[in-house]
Design a protein around this nucleic acid. Sequence first.
DNA 1: GGTTGACATTTTGCATTCATTTTTTGAAAG
DNA 2: CTTTCAAAAAATGAATGCAAAATGTCAACC
Lengths: 233, 233
Amino acid sequence: MNEPFLDTIDEQGPVPAEAAKPVASLHEGLLVALRDFIVEGNLADGARVPERALCERFNISRTPLREALKVLAAEGLIELLPNRGARVRQLSPEDIRELFDVMGGLEALAGRLACERISEAEFTEIEQVHHEMYRFYLRRDMHGYFHCNQAIHQLIVAAAGNATLAATYAGLAGRIRRVRYSANLAKDRDRWGEAMREHEAILDALRRRAGSELSDILFVHLRNKQKAAQASA
Amino acid sequence: MNEPFLDTIDEQGPVPAEAAKPVASLHEGLLVALRDFIVEGNLADGARVPERALCERFNISRTPLREALKVLAAEGLIELLPNRGARVRQLSPEDIRELFDVMGGLEALAGRLACERISEAEFTEIEQVHHEMYRFYLRRDMHGYFHCNQAIHQLIVAAAGNATLAATYAGLAGRIRRVRYSANLAKDRDRWGEAMREHEAILDALRRRAGSELSDILFVHLRNKQKAAQASA
DNA sequence: GGTTGACATTTTGCATTCATTTTTTGAAAG
DNA sequence: CTTTCAAAAAATGAATGCAAAATGTCAACC
């Protein structure tokens, strides 16, 4: 679920799907399947969502499908036009900028909360992943680096110990997952080094449990990521 | 919509309902009506949501009602138990604490973003409301004070110029609106004075466009409100 | 050749219906 | 009098049906 929203590499492929997920109801399962279907880009941006075709695709009638569409619309993944059906929501550059900022704010909050309640064991785990990430950085192993980076942001959100925060964050992450970010950091070695230094600062602030400082660093860190992504877009 | 989540006074009564709202579709109207119905506390905490009764209440069949319920469940207002219907979601003290923190984080973000883009006119408006609030404070006019307080927080979120942030904030506010906070500040004059001083600091930081500083102040300000609310609960 | 307007087709939104599950009721047993 | 079990009643989840709206088609007209 909680997937750090940048640092995504194209080769990662689709998410593991609902393999080990204990689906409580059929509806829940359909919702997850449909969400993945859209998030994975099976429908073009701004395209009509064909009810009938999807009913056949998922072997269900229109009623549960339409219920699922309403939920996805509430999540912001699609939009419902009265009497004109559902369309895959098209994110304008402005929408994306907004989403990035809100997620940055939530990560900043996660860092602040993490400082209040993180255990020594949790910190040690983050520290270890950080060092692992550094080794990847030295070896110029982009894939390994990204993996660790994701893990660290993930661990910080988890360390915040706030399920509401995690869920809100995941919801926003789902909206922009359709937007594919190529690993453009590869072409910007300066940014990579800068990001690495920022991560050092993150770990340092976390070690000192300096909440507001970490909050600042994280927000700026994500802003820099956003700028880097935009610059190479 | 965007209602600052504390500083709510009981005598405010229900929201003006969907009077001047240009309902695009019937479904949208139903959703709003049903949400208000639940938010306004017509259903007991944790109570079953009676489909049949609501269908009669709103003069619709079960299909659109169930669609609306799915959306409300996604919003976190109710929860759907498989084969056991919908229940009004009961917020544990922990849930409320989490919600407060996330909203605090979002307000902190709003302050930071507002510093980046607020216009002089917008700042002047906030400043005026602040002075008005101060006069209410001096006169010990709790109602007027709260009104201004709400307006200020509202204006800061608006000044952030981020619709995604505003929508996310409003969504969380809706979840917590069922929980009634009495104006317990009335019994804690010290907290009132402290809050007023915090608001002075907020205005000062905003005037200096000191984003990260304002972010800090706002988060702490909301944390203090939360603590005050808990202490007198 | 391009535009307009009427007709057919498709699609949407909602109501109704049906099968399955849950909850309630009531009676019998301990 | 309480507990247990079974049948009745109600509610839920999903499929189908139907009216209204939108979309597409095609021929008449400018």
